[in-house]
Computed example of a mutant assay.
Amino acid sequence: MSTSRVVAHPDADAVAQVTAARLVVRLVDLQSVRTPVHVVLTGGTVGIGVLAALRDHPGRDAIDWSGVHLWWGDERFLPSGHPDRNETQARGALLDELAPLLPAANVHPFPAAGSDGITSAEDAAAAYAAELAAHATVGAPRPAVPPFDVVLLGMGPDGHVASLFPGNTAELASGATVVAVHDAPKPPPDRVSLTNEAICVAEAVWLVVAGAEKAPSVAAALAGAALPAARVRGQVSTLWLLDAAAAAEIAVPAPSSTPSPS
């Protein structure tokens, strides 16, 4: 049975640090029993902060990075190397540092605009869906995606996750693992995103959220409102990692900077 937990920490930096620590423990534990493991990364201030904290974490080298595959939950449809791409920011925060240990073939960014004949967000979505399917477990009764161990997600003030925005036609896409997103309410308007169905294949979904402007949507999502953030859940566990400001409108234990082992 899937479980859901909410943990609050003092501030955004604490959320990033604790999430990185949890990820180290999670990956080391998983690799003690199987390989490869699959992690879905997120962008945004806190998401990239998690990667920077992981870069500097003393347990980072306990992970066998040759057995880790990295994916993304969404991407802005922009040219390769554009500073606003989640991939570009992730490489600067962590992946370039891991290059000697992390095989390039294990890093799976969304195709960039203009690369290899990719001329539209639909092209990028189709190509990424094919990449996901190529790493899916053969015969598994699930969408054609790898067995995601952890999906990291941020959340916007409107309750969006990945690039699934409330009211956008892509929000409730079904029967697909990746969707092209147009008319996003924040720039750039064209994006590519995993669908809710693909995200919810994950064993664990971690929502990392900071900022007072997000507190109303955090409370609404946890109360079951019709928001993208309320619809994502892991097959085994869903974990909300919040700072005190984002948790201001819900009842949670006193903020702590010490992660539990789970």
Score class of each variant (00 low, 15 high):
Phe77Pro: 02
Phe77Ile: 12
Ser80Met: 10
Gly81Lys: 12
Gly81Leu: 11
His82Thr: 08
His82Arg: 13
Pro83Asp: 07
Pro83His: 08
Pro83Ile: 05
Asp84Cys: 06
Arg85Ile: 03
Arg85His: 01
Asn86Ile: 00
Asn86Cys: 05
Glu87Ala: 09
Gly92Leu: 11
Gly92Asn: 13
Leu94Ser: 10
Leu94Asp: 10
Glu97Asn: 13
Pro100Gln: 03
Leu101His: 14
Pro103Asp: 01
Asn106Tyr: 02
His108Thr: 00
His108Asn: 03
His108Ser: 00
Phe110Leu: 09
Ala113Ser: 08
Gly114Ala: 01
Asp116Phe: 13
Asp116Gly: 15
Ser120Gln: 07
Ser120Lys: 04
Ala121Glu: 02
Ala121Gln: 01
Asp123Arg: 10
Asp123Ser: 01
Asp123His: 13
Ala124Pro: 04
Ala125Gln: 02
Ala127His: 05
Tyr128Met: 08
Ala129Pro: 10
Glu131Met: 12
Ala133Leu: 13
Ala136Lys: 13
Ala136Gly: 13
Ala136Tyr: 09
Thr137Arg: 14
Gly139Tyr: 08
Arg142Pro: 02
Pro143Leu: 15
Ala144Asn: 15
Val145Ala: 14
Pro146Glu: 01
Pro147Asn: 12
Phe148Asp: 03
Asp149Glu: 14
Asp149Ser: 08
Val151Asp: 03
Leu152Cys: 02
Leu153Ser: 03
Leu153Lys: 06
Met155Val: 11
Gly156His: 05
Pro157Gly: 15
Asp158Gln: 12
Gly159Leu: 09
His160Ala: 07
His160Glu: 00
His160Gly: 03
Val161Ser: 08
Ala162Phe: 00
Phe165Pro: 03
Pro166His: 07
Pro166Thr: 08
Pro166Cys: 10
Gly167Asn: 10
Thr169Lys: 11
Thr169Gln: 15
Ala170Asp: 04
Glu171Gln: 15
Glu171Ala: 14
Ser174Cys: 07
Gly175Leu: 05
Ala176His: 06
Ala176Leu: 14
Val178Ala: 05
Val178Glu: 01
Val178Asp: 04
Val181Glu: 06
Asp183Arg: 11
Asp183Tyr: 00
Pro185Thr: 03
Pro185Asn: 00
Lys186Cys: 02
Lys186Tyr: 00
Pro188Asp: 04
Pro188Phe: 07
Asp190Ile: 13
Val192Asp: 06
Ser193Pro: 10
Ser193Tyr: 01
Leu194Lys: 12
Leu194Gln: 09
Thr195Phe: 03
Asn196Gly: 14
Glu197Leu: 10
Ile199Asn: 10
Cys200Glu: 06
Val201Arg: 13
Ala202Gln: 05
Ala202Tyr: 11
Glu203Thr: 14
Glu203Cys: 10
Ala204Leu: 14
Trp206Asp: 02
Trp206Met: 09
Trp206Cys: 04
Leu207Gly: 14
Val208Asn: 04
Val208Met: 07
Val209Phe: 03
Val209Lys: 08
